[in-house]
C-alpha cells in the first residue's frame, strides 16, 4: 500500500538550517538534537548543497520485513510505517537494514524511532522556512 501522503524534498531550496530536525527531535524526545531526529540533512561540498533525507515509507520496507516482532506496521490512515513502542524490543535490525539510516533505536528509549508522518501533518514540513520540504497528498 502506497502512503497517502509523502514528504517531497527539494534540495535546491534547502539551506541546511536543520530546523526540520529540531522540530522532529522535539516531537520524539521533547528536546533538541538533530542526530536523534527521523529526518536528516546531508551537507555537501562545503555547504554548497544540502540534501534532506526522509523515510520513503517503502512499498517493500526492509525495516518492517526484518523486524522480529513485526513492530513496524502500516498506519491505515496515512500509509506511514509506524513503530509500535510496546512491541519493539530495541534490537535495531531495522537500522541495520535500512539503506538510508531512517530508523533506529535512540538514546534514552529502548525502541526504534522512525518517521510516522506525524499523523498526516509532518512537523518538519511546518518548520521548514524555505519550501525545501512539502507535504504532497496523493
Amino acid at each position: 500500500m502506497r502512503p497517502k501522503i509523502f514528504i517531497k524534498t527539494n534540495f535546491d531550496l534547502c539551506s541546511g538550517c536543520e530546523l526540520c530536525c529540531l522540530a522532529c527531535s522535539e516531537k520524539f524526545f521533547n528536546g533538541y538534537n538533530p542526530h536523534l531526529s527521523a529526518i536528516r540533512i546531508d551537507h555537501g561540498e562545503e555547504n554548497l548543497y544540502h540534501f534532506p533525507v526522509v523515510c520513503q515509507q517503502c512499498d517493500n520496507p526492509y525495516c518492517a520485513n526484518v523486524c522480529p516482532k513485526k513492530a513496524i506496521e502500516r498506519d491505515p490512515q496515512t500509509g506511514a510505517l509506524v513503530v509500535n513502542p510496546d512491541e519493539c524490543i530495541g534490537c535495531n535490525l531495522c537500522n541495520r537494514y535500512c539503506p538510508i539510516d531512517m530508523a533506529g533505536v535512540g538514546p534514552e528509549v529502548n525502541y526504534s524511532i522512525k518517521c510516522d508522518l506525524c499523523n498526516g501533518a509532518p512537523k518538519c514540513v511546518d518548520a521548514c522556512p524555505t519550501g525545501a520540504l512539502e507535504t504532497i497528498s496523493l
Binding site: 538550517c17 561540498e45 555547504n47 554548497l48
Partner: peptide, 29 residues
C-alpha cells in the same frame, strides 16, 4: 551566487553560496 545556506537553526540563511566558475580564478566554492 548560486544558492543559500544557513547556520544551524537559522531561518535567515544569510550565506549566499556560490562559485567562481569563469575567468582566470575559476573554479572554487
Amino acid at each position: 551566487f548560486l544558492g543559500k545556506a544557513a547556520c544551524f537553526g537559522c531561518p535567515i540563511r544569510c550565506s549566499q553560496m556560490g562559485a567562481v566558475r569563469t575567468g582566470k580564478h575559476a573554479h572554487f566554492i
